[in-house]
């Protein structure tokens, strides 16, 4: 048995991983989520804002991390739209602009048709330059963004007329999948201008543990990976959309089902691997 496990073709492990995610999805396995302190902190930070407060929605993610970030992104938009905040979308991550368009179409246009583009929300688009973009727009937005993503002059967009830089925002919400992302917003926006605005964010699992040193002084709260997304999603939908039938507001919680089974599998594989290792070691010693 030990020899069999030792020589086990890794493709069987791949199959086990595939099934451990596939079966919960087919069975729509779902578990209750209780919010932890971090998700609560993010929720509270947005709750503090009043109707009409400007919020920068920095969408720095792409389809590769949609699995973890899409639920939190949609929940952020739902939360801000429900509170009637003024949403300014932009991206310093190449495909983030596209993600913002998708979220606007899926959330705002469907559930908040009364919100008007240019008055309640605007998509400024993507600019390359990584952290260089942040460095410029914290002082001068129009230098890099003379128009929005549709080519309309910012001075002709009612909600942009009095916005000169990111310092005019009350809060920055960053959804980040890598570089540039939440770290850069901390380094070039919330650290040098800590008294002007707060920063909250959501990021992938890979980044989440790395952002803890910034909490809470430089980063008021963060949603880490799909768990954070599921917790925040349940907080937002409980308050603002408790009867919603829309599946897009349940994605985070739905994706936690496979997490449980797959985590069990991971733990099982590690234990099994070590059993094989110790058995072979004792055989070798014998």
């Amino acid at each position: 048995m030990i020899d069999f496990l030792d020589k086990l073709d890794r493709r069987w492990i791949f199959l086990a991983m595939g099934l451990s995610v596939l079966i919960p999805i087919l069975m729509k396995l779902q578990f209750p989520e209780t919010a932890t302190a971090q998700s609560q902190a993010v929720f509270e930070e947005i709750e503090k804002l009043k109707e009409g407060d400007p919020v920068l929605m920095a969408w720095d993610w792409d389809p590769a991390s949609a699995g973890e970030l899409e639920p939190m992104a949609k929940s952020f938009v739902l939360h801000c739209a429900s509170k009637k905040l003024k949403m300014y979308f932009l991206a310093i991550y190449p495909l983030g602009n596209q993600m913002a368009d998708n979220d606007i179409a899926d959330v705002i246009k469907v559930d908040f048709p009364d919100l008007k583009y240019g008055e309640d929300y605007v998509n400024l688009g993507y600019k390359p330059g990584y952290e260089g973009v942040i460095k410029v727009i914290v002082n001068n937005l129009r230098e890099l963004y003379p128009t929005d993503s549709r080519g309309t002059n910012l001075d002709q967009i009612p909600m942009c007329r009095n916005v000169n830089s990111v310092q005019d925002m009350k809060l920055i919400i960053n959804v980040s999948s890598g570089y540039p992302g939440i770290k850069e917003w901390v380094q070039y926006a919330s650290t040098p201008y800590k008294h002007k605005f707060k920063l909250v964010g959501g990021c992938t699992g890979v980044q989440a543990s790395l952002m803890y040193p910034y909490i809470p002084q430089q980063l008021a709260g963060q949603l880490g990976a799909i768990k954070g997304a599921a917790e925040y999603e349940s907080l937002v939908t409980e308050k603002y959309d408790p009867d919603s039938k829309r599946e897009i507001y349940k994605e985070g919680r739905r994706r936690m089902g496979p997490q449980l089974i797959a985590h069990m599998l991971m733990i099982g594989l590690i234990i099994l691997g070590n059993i094989v290792y110790f058995a072979q070691r004792s055989r070798g010693a014998a």
Partner: peptide, 14 residues
């Protein structure tokens, strides 16, 4: 995800 599972079985030794 698959490679993480494979690594968990093959590489993570106590």
């Amino acid at each position: 995800a698959f490679y993480v599972a494979s690594a968990a079985f093959r590489a993570f030794r106590v």
